[in-house]
Design a binder for these strands. Structure first.
Lengths: 199, 199
DNA sequence: GACAGAGACGAACGATCGTACTATTATTCT
DNA sequence: AGAATAATAGTACGATCGTTCGTCTCTGTC
């Protein structure tokens, strides 16, 4: 890895963390330069535009997400255990990944849902992929005989997303100390409702 | 209502709609002036700071929310019917209220969850109140005998919030045409799980 | 060790932001 | 109707934004 790549990675590390609190738009090249002890033009040179910086920030976070959530989750046994692993890793990931402002993707989703552009398209593709992966994990749980055949994977995936989103909302904005506990309870309810009836 | 109040309301109408797409921070006095055919200083004079503009924008939206959601919901019969009314009105409210960028509160929540200040405190108070109201509606459904006694109102309220958030997410960002349908299905599942077992 | 190329810096640009001040036009009240 | 007051416009300010450009300082290679 050349010297340029090293500093570029360091910039992106800060960028992900900074964008998690101020958003992809609030992200500023000047501030990024201060926090990395570089000059403004030095930072800018690595990305040739702000939009490129935003996209690479999203991509950098996506790589971390794959490392910290997706890969470990897929290491769990197929079926319900894998779903439990995915949920647990997902809930913990903003903390584990050093994003002081909570999940960057959630912040970016609210920001970009009305702003057309390459950054939005990038995020949409990422999130569609993640939802599809979740649905596939649920599908496998059905195939495995853990979940009932009538369970709709896409429905389950959207429900799971809702549990995560409302947890972040209650926890980060409202400061509810029980948000995490309630999210786990909601998850259990979802899983129980999907399970095959036990004899 | 004096002339000043009339234009102030007109500005705030545009402000709510504009902020729903670009966020409370992306909201700009200059752009607001263009769209209302006023001068920049003319708009500024009505609010003596941008923070005040943001807060009054939130407050303006809250008044509409009370008119379009809270009051009509409370007009429905206590218990499960009132919960159904609240949910239906809630899901439809961004459209009904002319917010082209989706629910302003959702956008503001993601934006302000890390930015201390009066605007954040205002939003937090609003959303806490709304969640508390939802919980009370659920509590009434328990008292009414529609819901089981073990149902926890705050849990139900957070779950409901999750259904709404994931619907907005899937619909607005991912463009999923089934998002609304899935949200209604998730709502039905929540209600069914809370109901007293039918004989 | 010299040379080519990449990396970082510093200064400057046009634009736009929030805000302040002053002047001018509308409105309200007696 | 005219005086008092409120509402709007105009202009200008300092700051900060993304971006450009020219220069210098490193790094890696023959």
């Amino acid at each position: 890895m050349s010297k340029g790549d090293v500093t570029r990675q360091a910039i992106l590390d800060h960028s992900v963390s900074l964008a998690s609190t101020v958003g992809l738009d609030g992200l500023t090249i000047g501030r990024l330069a201060e926090e990395t002890a570089l000059s403004k033009s030095g930072v800018f040179a690595h990305f040739r535009s702000k939009e490129s910086l935003q996209i690479q920030t999203l991509e950098h976070a996506a790589v971390r997400f794959a490392d910290l959530v997706i890969r470990p989750a897929l290491a769990a046994p197929r079926g319900e255990p894998r779903i439990r692993a995915a949920f647990r890793l997902w809930m913990d990931w903003p903390k584990k990944s050093g994003m002081p402002g909570g999940c960057l993707f959630v912040a970016a989703a609210a920001e970009l849902d009305d702003q057309p552009g390459a950054a939005r398209e990038h995020l949409v593709a990422q999130q569609r992929q993640w939802l599809a992966l979740l649905a596939n994990v649920v599908r496998a749980a059905v195939a495995e005989g853990h979940f009932r055949a009538e369970v709709e994977p896409e429905q389950f995936a959207q429900d799971l997303y809702g549990v995560m989103l409302s947890c972040f909302f209650s926890h980060r904005l409202l400061g509810d100390p029980d948000a995490g506990h309630r999210a786990r309870a909601a998850f259990e309810n979802l899983v129980m409702a999907a399970r095959v009836p036990q004899a």
